[in-house]
Structures are given as structure tokens and as C-alpha cells.
Amino acid sequence: MSAPRVLIPVALGTNRDGDLADAFRLAGAEPVTVPLTDLRAGLGGVGDYQILALPGGFSYGDALGAGRLFGLDLIGWFADRLYEAVDAGKPIIGICNGFQALVRTGILPGDEGPAATATLAENESGRFECRWITLDPSPASVWTAELSDALRCPVAHGEGRFVSADLDAIEGRKGVVLRYGVGGYPHNPNGSVGDVAGITDPTGLILGMMPHPENHIHEWQDPLRGRGGTGNCLPLFRAGVRAA
């Protein structure tokens, strides 16, 4: 079987697309990075793809709220492709700014149809924070189904505090699939309610998360190497690739 293709759309200001492509490549997939301007112009030879991955960054400078204009792009001139992917059962992942975009569009949490019910607000500390954290996984998503051990990777964001009027509904269907381990600042770096780091939609296909698993795919990246470091995140990407 040939390697599944991963479509990575990028907006002006997206900047972790390269890191994400590296992770998928290492996980055995074939990433294709395409500017949204190309998709919009019908260029880029997108062709067939099996995974959609929305990368991190500061799309459009995070003007008017992180991920907001990226989300409008997705809904505005990318919606068909997006919903087609959801309907076809393709795994989708949105990381950091990509997660913010999925939440702004209402695709996540996705309990109530296409209206936003959650948001990623400014960190409780009021500033951008970059630090390594621990993630406890639970299995309700294809991306996390087979993870048993905690993951470790960095966060790097200023607007990552998960807020939802409807957290009970998400918790009720076990939709919180990644939680900051230990809890409390700085382990929960942004003050998210329920230590939420990542959620899935009801189908389990769409994963959105603030931390950056794409930055812990090699042992040498781990700041705890030589001190019993663990929690390589490559299995998360491998799971998505297997599910494609």
C-alpha cells in the first residue's frame, strides 16, 4: 500500500507546517503543503489525500483573534473539501493555530452542528508561553486510541485556554482525549478548564490540540534525555496514518 497523502494547507503567517510535515513523513505518510491561495485559485494539484492536517502559526497575524481568519478561510472557500473529508471518514488534525481555527468554525467540539460552542481564550498568565508539558491520553479518537503512556511535547501559544459552555457534553462522550498531566500552573500552561489540552469530535476522527506533538518525534529533541525522558509523540502520528 502506498503512503497516505497528508494535505497541509497554509495561510499567510502559518509557520509550523514544516515541523508537521516532518512528523508525518517520519510516521510513514506523504505530506503535501499547499498555500490556501493555491487552493483558492484551483492550483496546486491537490489531488487525492487521506489526511487533512491544519498546522500551527499565526495565520494572518492572529488578527481579530487567533485562528479566526484561518477559520473563515476554511468555511469561506474551503468548506466543501473540509466537510467532504469529514463525511469520507478521513482523519483530521488541527494543532495550535489549526485547533483554534477548527474551534472558531464550530467543527470542534462538533456536538451541535456548525456553530462555535467553545473558544480558546488568552492564557491565564496573559502572555505567550513556550514550555514542555506532559499529556495524559484517553482513547476516544483514532489519533489517541492506542496510546497508553503519557506524551511529552512543548506548548507555544498565547491563546490556548480552552473554554466551553458545554464541557459536560464533551466529557460525557469522553471527548477530552488529551489532558495536561499533573495539573496546575505551569503544568497546565494556560489555565484550561478541566486541564483540557486536546479534544475530539463525536466521530473520533477530528483531533484538535494546543501542544505540539510534531516537536517531539526524535529522542534528541527531549529536554529530559539522559534523565529518563519518555513520551515520544510519533505514535500519535502513526495512529492517524494507520487510520487513513
Binding site: 509550523r16 515541523d19 502572555r127 508561553e129 513556550c130 512543548p154 505540539h212 518525534i217
Partner: peptide
């Protein structure tokens, strides 16, 4: 230092 992204590019 925590307000600077020192991890990007992996």
C-alpha cells in the same frame, strides 16, 4: 525566555 518560542523548527 518562556515568552519566546525556542522549539519551533524542531
Amino acid at each position: 525566555v518562556r515568552t519566546f518560542d525556542h522549539e519551533i523548527m524542531g
